[in-house]
Amino acid sequence: MEIPASRKPGDVICMERIFPLPQIIRNKIIDVFCQLDPPAREEAKKLPSNRDCLVRPYLGRVRIAGSQKRLRAFSLRNYKLHLDQIQYLGLDAEAYATAMAKAMATMHWDIRIDAADIEFVLGSSPAEEDTITRPKSLEQLQNLTAKTDTYTEVVVSSPNFKQRLVSLWLVDFDACNDISMDETGVQQAVRAFVENEPYCPRPNGGTSYSDQLWRAFSTQYLATSMAILGEKHDAAGLPRMFLTGSVVAKDEVGHNQREFPDHRVGEGEIII
């Protein structure tokens, strides 16, 4: 097959699969948080559907203590890991918060979208046998010559599926909309932030732990925003306006960031 001479080479997007969390982590979640009887917990570990495990970290919501009903099933698909669970497991929630802040600031002020209905998930990727690939920096990309292929340098070429890296992934951009670099755009971004699932920390969470995460998120969000916009940019005040607007909107909505665990019965799940 010949490529027509009229076709010119251009940029492409490399798509990468997000692999489920390793079995040892999946089993640990079941051991710690599944309320089924021991035999049923062991069966839950063997369910094929529970191999498809991506965890949704909810840094902005905790479960209601002492009000959990006995579960009829336990599913690891899109498992919601609430802030109290993250704290109980001793995970580095502040690292997640700062990573989310960098992503949100980049979407708002570099890509200039409202980040509506985006999702953060914990998944894995196979390690490369020799080295772990890293994205190229902006400086490295700017120094590349024309028609340079970066695919083999950025994408894992010799995957080792027995050694997997657990990472925070950002997915689902289909509902995002462009925003203007003014107060109207900020209001749109605030509305998208408040109405989305509570992946990111939320202000006035009611505990010192949640407040600490909101401070970490806010500090990193402002730092990344300023690195993108610069202090003298006409829109330099908008990132702080977004944070202030999020606090006000959260208080006005009065949304209780606590919920019962959501474990719906689906195909292949254990029914007790």
Rank of each mutant, 00 (worst) to 15 (best):
Tyr209Gly: 05
Trp109Cys: 08
Asp114Asn: 12
Pro38Val: 12
Asp178Thr: 15
Ser67Trp: 02
Gln85Trp: 02
Asp110Gln: 12
Arg63Leu: 15
Gln163Arg: 15
Leu59Val: 04
Phe19Gln: 05
Arg51Gln: 13
Gly266Thr: 11
Ala189Tyr: 05
Ala236Thr: 03
Leu165Ala: 13
Arg264Tyr: 12
Ala101His: 05
Arg7Glu: 13
Ala105Ser: 09
Ile3Trp: 08
Leu168Ser: 06
Leu229Pro: 02
His263Phe: 07
Met226His: 12
Asp182Ala: 08
Gln257Asp: 14
Pro159Asn: 09
Val253Ser: 15
Met181Cys: 11
Phe33Thr: 02
Met241Thr: 07
Pro9Ile: 01
Ile64Asn: 13
Ala192Phe: 03
Asp117Thr: 05
Lys8Thr: 12
Glu139Cys: 07
Glu259Trp: 04
Thr98Tyr: 04
Leu243Trp: 04
Arg264His: 14
Glu128Tyr: 05
Gly185Asp: 06
Arg191Lys: 13
Glu129Lys: 11
Ala103Gly: 03
Arg7Ile: 14
Val265Ala: 14
Phe19Thr: 03
Arg41Met: 05
Ser125Pro: 00
Glu16Cys: 13
Cys34Val: 13
Arg41Val: 06
Asp31Phe: 11
Met15Phe: 11
Gln188Val: 10
Gly185Glu: 08
Glu197Trp: 05
Gln257Val: 05
Val248Asn: 04
Pro239Trp: 06
Met15Asn: 10
Pro9Leu: 10
Ile113Leu: 07
Asp251Val: 15
Asp130Asn: 12
Thr244Ile: 07
Gly90Met: 07
Met15Lys: 14
Val190Ser: 10
Glu139Asn: 02
Leu91Ser: 10
Ser137Pro: 03
Pro135Glu: 02
Asp52Lys: 15
Arg112Leu: 10
Tyr58Gln: 05
Thr224His: 11
Leu238Gln: 08
Gln140Trp: 00
Glu42Leu: 11
Ala93Asn: 01
Asp117Tyr: 02
Asn204Tyr: 02
Asn256Gly: 09
Gln187Arg: 14
Val156Phe: 01
Met107Ile: 05
Gly254Val: 11
Ile25Met: 15
Thr152Lys: 12
Ala223Met: 10
Gly10Pro: 00
Pro48Asn: 06
Glu197Ile: 13
Ile118Lys: 08
Val247Asn: 08
Glu43Asn: 06
Ala44Tyr: 00
Ile30Ser: 01
Pro126Met: 12
Asn50Lys: 00
Glu129Cys: 09
Arg17Val: 15
Val166Ala: 11
Asp174Trp: 00
Ala97Thr: 05
Pro261Asn: 11
Gly90Ile: 03
Ala235Asn: 07
Gly60Ala: 08
Leu54Thr: 09
Leu59Gln: 03
Pro4Trp: 03
Phe33Ser: 04
Glu195Tyr: 04
Ala73Val: 03
Arg134Gln: 14
Glu139Thr: 09
Glu16Arg: 11
Arg215His: 12
Ile18Cys: 08
Gln140Gly: 08
Ser208His: 08
Val171Asp: 01
Ala40Asn: 13
Asn143Arg: 14
Val166Phe: 02
Leu47His: 03
Arg164Asp: 06
Ala95Gly: 04
Cys53Arg: 00
Asp262Met: 13
Ala40Arg: 14
Met181Asn: 09
Leu21Asp: 03
Cys14Gly: 10
Leu83Asp: 04
Ala189Thr: 09
Leu36Arg: 04
Arg17Gln: 15
Leu91Asp: 03
Ile179Met: 08
Ala99Leu: 09
Val12Pro: 00
Ile179His: 01
Glu42Lys: 08
Leu168Gln: 08
Asn196Phe: 06
Asp110Cys: 09
